[in-house]
């Protein structure tokens, strides 16, 4: 009986059976059911097409950039990297501040290199303002931003406040969703 088997016929038979079973197995294993509430939560993130990330060039802020990239990855969101140079009220707003601006440019450069790794479109915004928080909220309003991702320091600020002044202003005045990323002290 075995001697009668044609080798090519055997190969075709095996190919036929394996193909048939593989197709049927794939067919019988569809993706899981997504309930209405889960679908709403899942898809609402897809509406986030523009994410603003304030940076100060410190590791916690750069972690915020990475977090924003991951949040925007699936829907290809645009990342607006923003550095605000705070000018004290005792000085005119247009006063030359080459060191602060250079620091800002370098911070934006580093943040940009993180976004590039994700292949997302991005813009670098370097602005001067009296209060960074107000300026960030204004940019978010003007540019129709969908989300602000804010990496904040793990150590508490003055008077033991969890949020610093900038974060507090952003939370109060932001026209859009705000995500705050605060690492534990040990980190």
């Amino acid at each position: 009986m075995i001697a009668q088997i044609n080798p090519l016929g055997a190969v075709i038979s095996v190919f036929f059976v394996v193909s048939l079973l593989s197709i049927l197995w794939w067919m019988l294993h569809p993706p899981v059911y997504i309930p209405a509430a889960a679908a709403k939560a899942r898809r609402s993130l897809f509406a986030v097409k523009k994410i603003l990330v304030p940076t100060v060039g410190l590791p916690y802020a750069e972690r915020g950039v990475e977090l924003a990239c991951r949040l925007g990855d699936e829907q290809g969101a645009e990342i607006l990297l923003t550095y605000v140079v705070e000018v004290p009220r005792t000085m005119p707003l247009g006063i030359p501040l080459p060191e602060a601006e250079q620091e800002g440019s370098q911070a934006l450069e580093r943040a940009g290199s993180i976004v590039k790794l994700h292949g997302l479109p991005f813009q670098k915004i370097l602005q001067r303002a009296r209060l960074a928080g107000e300026e960030i909220a204004r940019i978010a309003r003007e540019r129709d931003v969908d989300m602000i991702v804010l990496g904040i320091r793990s150590e508490p600020g003055l008077r033991d406040a969890i949020l610093g002044r900038t974060s507090d202003i952003i939370l109060r005045h932001s026209p859009c969703e705000v995500v705050i990323d605060k690492l534990p002290k040990e980190a």
Binding site: M1, I5, N6, S13
Partner: peptide, 15 residues
């Protein structure tokens, strides 16, 4: 149908 095809290719088919 699959049985006919498999048995046919195994025992009777001549390329």
């Amino acid at each position: 149908e699959a049985s006919i095809i498999v048995l046919g290719f195994l025992f009777a088919w001549k390329p």
